[in-house]
Design a binder for these strands. Structure first.
Lengths: 123, 123
DNA sequence: ATCGTTGCAAATCTTTTGCAAACGC
DNA sequence: GCGTTTGCAAAAGATTTGCAACGAT
């Protein structure tokens, strides 16, 4: 049996996830630098991996090259501005398309990208 | 000005993209091993990068850890079986959710995952 | 003859892992 | 004390890049 232990590092990583906006592991690590408790890079990856496997956070594979993590685990989609990189949560899930016969839907991940109003205004 | 030149390597990479099912760069490279013309790993990545920037292929960031590439550039979504890994193309794009005020939609990427009928039947 | 393209190898970046020390329960 | 978690450093995997040789136009 593998019971989860409560540690300062796990709490710090989870707090970072809420303080930042859909951060990558690298961004979480950078955010925690110089803070207490110290958290190593390896631990950031390990904790995020444990969290996403236990369903406490959702691992996103969109938004560029690195994986990003979302503490909001309710079903929702994301909109990202191509220019400033800002991310918005979109409530609800997209309407299901015609799935293959007999396909049992478990998860869905949708990202739309484009240009946000602020960036469009800047020219 | 940067005009694209027609080369055997580019053609080979593009052919691999059509022969395989949403392959990763590594899978394209493996497929081309031992074939004519020889294509190095670096060139596979470079050609795929050029193709996806010019819009000739679409770079997908889903389906696991590596980027995958789709020669079908029309708007469509993907369904993936969590067990056998098979991928289906779903025609059409998901209904737009409530986007941020003034957001200019450019692209959308949707992947749904679950269990396909064949895998469900196997138990 | 240009200038884009390739192969090769080294470099970079992201993520994982082995192992001994430290800590929660 | 037992078993999990951490830090560190090394390893692994994915992707990019420098550079000289090559090839398409």
């Amino acid at each position: 049996m593998t019971s989860q232990r409560r540690t300062a590092q796990k709490q710090a990583v989870y707090d970072a996830l809420r303080a930042l906006d859909h951060p990558s592991a690298t961004e979480v690590y950078a955010y925690l630098q110089g803070k207490e408790p110290a958290v190593s890079r390896g631990t950031v990856f390990r904790v995020l991996s444990v969290f996403s496997e236990s369903g406490r956070v959702k691992k996103l594979r969109l938004l560029g090259d690195e994986a990003h993590y979302d503490h909001n685990t309710s079903p929702h989609a994301h909109a990202r501005c191509r220019l400033c990189g800002m991310v918005w949560d979109l409530q609800g899930v997209p309407a299901p398309l015609a799935l293959p016969e007999g396909f049992l839907l478990e998860e869905s991940e949708l990202e739309v990208s484009g240009v946000c109003a602020a960036c469009a205004a800047k020219g």
